[in-house]
């Protein structure tokens, strides 16, 4: 990239940072690739969170402690948890089908992404920037330096951002709000409905076989020893995450076999 030794010296970073980079960078790339390729949205979210943590490490390494902390708190902490919440609300019911419905989309998308990335790399190859470092800018502390900029040069953008946040909050409320269009049912009506409808009047059986498998993904056993299907969440049934209910005739498994089950989904 740089032709002269002087420039090379000027642009070089410390060994510690290099080690950090070469450890975290593959993790970040692999995690993001995993996000791209995993069929389950929850896995994608968790892998993305991992990528973001790696990025936070990079920020910290590059004299941006404030951003690094914000990255962890806001992104990994708030944004990604929001994603997970919504995933739960929307339902973790199904994983994406692998069949591409748009003709040629997959090939074109891969080609475009690769081409774009290659172009970007090529363009970056032309950039020659010396490594000035932030020692001067951060002499009063990183947070103080940022604050000085935000509240002076970028104060207008900052104020506008506040308006944006308020608008976004309002917008989210408006979008998520559902207008009630009928009278709420009274308790009496609800109980009449429950009994008339032939539904299970009493609470459903709880899951879990106490003393052996006290877990939500294990159906309870009925008195005759057969598993009670209604005792586990439908979501878990739909995801195929229900464990085998240990019946009266079930062979006793060892602990390692049971733990190994968790990864086999």
């Amino acid at each position: 990239m740089s032709g002269t030794g002087l420039l090379l010296a000027a642009t070089d970073t410390g060994t510690g940072e290099a080690v950090l980079f070469w450890v975290l960078a593959p993790v970040a790339v692999l995690a993001s690739l995993g996000m791209l390729l995993s069929r389950k949205a929850v896995h994608s979210a968790l892998l993305l969170a991992l990528t973001m943590l790696c990025l936070a490490g990079f920020y910290l390494a590059q004299d941006a402690p404030f951003l690094g902390v914000v990255q962890i708190v806001v992104y990994t902490g708030a944004v990604m948890m929001l994603f997970l919440f919504v995933l739960m609300l929307v339902g973790v019911d199904s994983s994406d089908s692998l069949v591409e419905t748009l003709r040629g989309q997959r090939v074109a998308a891969v080609a475009a992404a690769l081409g774009f990335g290659a172009l970007l790399m090529f363009a970056i190859g032309d950039v020659v920037v010396d490594n000035a470092g932030l020692d001067q800018a951060n002499r009063d502390g990183n947070v103080q330096g940022l604050a000085a900029l935000i509240f002076s040069r970028y104060v207008f953008a900052f104020e506008v951002t506040s308006a944006l946040l308020i608008t976004a909050a309002l917008g989210a409320m408006v979008l998520a709000h559902r207008e009630r269009i009928e009278r709420p049912l009274s308790q009496r009506e609800l109980s009449v409905q429950r009994f008339r409808g032939g539904m299970h009047p009493a609470p459903l059986p709880g899951p879990g076989v106490y003393a052996r498998h006290n877990a939500v993904d294990t159906p309870a056993l009925l008195p005759d020893g057969s598993p009670a299907e209604t005792s586990v969440s439908r979501v878990l049934i739909a995801r195929g995450d229900v464990r085998q209910a240990p019946g009266a005739d079930v062979v006793v498994r060892d602990a390692s076999q049971i733990e190994g089950d968790g990864d086999d989904r």
Partner: peptide
């Protein structure tokens, strides 16, 4: 299909970068 549009956008961005180069 939003994804088709997104593909167009990406291709357009790539072309722009190519031209700038």
């Amino acid at each position: 299909f939003v994804r088709s549009y997104a593909l167009s956008m990406l291709v357009g961005a790539a072309v722009l970068v190519g031209i700038m180069l």
